[in-house]
């Protein structure tokens, strides 16, 4: 058999089916406030926020190779930013969300300047130090409650929605919009020249560099963009909780460890993997009794096993088993004519 001509495509039947599926899912989610209970909305918000965090961390680590264990710095920054701006400066909470995102993005530039001097795993620990600096600084901020933190004044919570249900609906819309925005931006980024550069860096940084990819600039863009998104998510997390403290805002377990486990279990370095990982986490969390510390131990152990046995995660297994993908991200070479 000789192949006379080849064509290169992104879309396959499974991605076309995937797009239909995604469109109907989005429509269903958009209409949820019309039919869902407050508890269901609360759960969905949680899911959106964690899916977003997982996708952002995956964008950072799985594509740009920046394994940060300090993303809680930006979650906490977003949360504290929202509390400070809304409670102390009187800015409407939902307007605070993009503002703190922008502030985090600006702040992340000098942080990157420092941390990018560290390679690989040392970068990881360095990012943790930065998050600790934020946490310890928050303890010193007495106007925001110091070590014990503060609650969002009731009048400000009510400015988002008079009844708790209304507030949940408002946060729900914002969280869903934010999640969709983040997914679309990551998706477009992966399909752009930057995405190509990222894939090259992920596969072989040295080769990418020698082929003219500006590795430092590409990584910086991803780092700053991720800080922007992570801080906005952080703002929403604490807008929903109405209470913030340094330990909760800058918790490595809640905002980084869990997220890393979701991504690793779902599939590091693929678009769909982190979404799958986050959904699996919530499925387990909602069906199993709350086992406290044991829960994190089991998740950690499963993540280690996945890393050792199936480094591309569950989504990687699904993809190699059935050759499917939901989104047209990968290029395929298809023979046109055969003799």
């Amino acid at each position: 058999m000789t192949v006379a001509a080849l064509t290169i495509v992104r879309a396959t039947p499974s991605t076309r089916l995937g797009l239909v599926f995604i469109a109907s899912l989005v429509a269903g989610l958009l209409s949820a406030p019309l039919w869902a209970t407050t508890d269901a909305l609360r759960l969905l918000i949680d899911i959106f926020l964690y899916v977003a965090l997982a996708c952002l961390w995956n964008f950072l680590a799985g594509y740009a190779g920046l394994v940060s264990v300090g993303q809680q710095a930006f979650v906490g920054l977003g949360g504290y930013g929202l509390f400070a701006l809304s409670a102390k400066a009187g800015i409407p909470p939902l307007l605070c969300v993009p503002i703190v995102g922008l502030a985090a993005a600006l702040l992340s530039i000098p942080i990157a300047g420092l941390l990018f001097r560290l390679r690989g795993a040392y970068f990881a620990i360095g990012s943790w130090v930065v998050a600790e600096v934020f946490r310890l600084s928050a303890i010193l901020l007495t106007p925001l409650g110091g070590g014990s933190g503060m609650s969002l004044p009731a009048r400000i919570a009510q400015s988002v929605g008079r009844a708790p249900h209304d507030r949940f609906v408002a946060v729900y819309w914002t969280a869903l919009a934010l999640l969709l925005g983040i997914l679309v931006i990551i998706f477009l980024a992966l399909r752009s020249r930057t995405g190509l550069a990222l894939t090259a860096i992920r596969d072989n940084e040295l080769a990418a560099r020698s082929n003219g990819v500006n590795v430092g600039r590409t990584k910086l863009i991803v780092y700053v963009a991720t800080a922007f998104g992570t801080a906005m998510i952080g703002a929403l997390i604490f807008l929903q909780r109405l209470r913030i403290s340094p330990d909760a805002a800058f918790s490595v377990n809640d905002w980084t460890a869990l997220v890393i486990f979701m991504v690793v279990i779902g599939g590091l370095g693929s678009f769909e993997g982190p979404i799958l990982g986050a959904l699996i986490y919530f499925l387990l969390r909602e069906t199993l009794a709350n086992l406290g510390p044991t829960y994190l131990m089991v998740l950690g152990a499963v993540a280690i096993l996945v890393m050792l046995l199936a480094p591309r995660g569950l989504w990687g297994l699904v993809r190699s088993r059935w050759q499917i993908q939901l989104l047209p991200l990968q290029l395929r070479v298809i023979p046109l004519t055969k003799h």
């Binding site: 690989g120 990881a124 486990f261 044991t294 131990m297 993540a303």
Partner: peptide, 20 residues
């Protein structure tokens, strides 16, 4: 050659020891 596995595995171990 990949730095992710040792990093993530030791991070997982860290969480396991802490919670254990």
């Amino acid at each position: 050659n990949d730095l992710l596995p040792p990093l993530l595995v030791s991070f997982g171990l860290s969480v396991i020891i802490q919670n254990g």
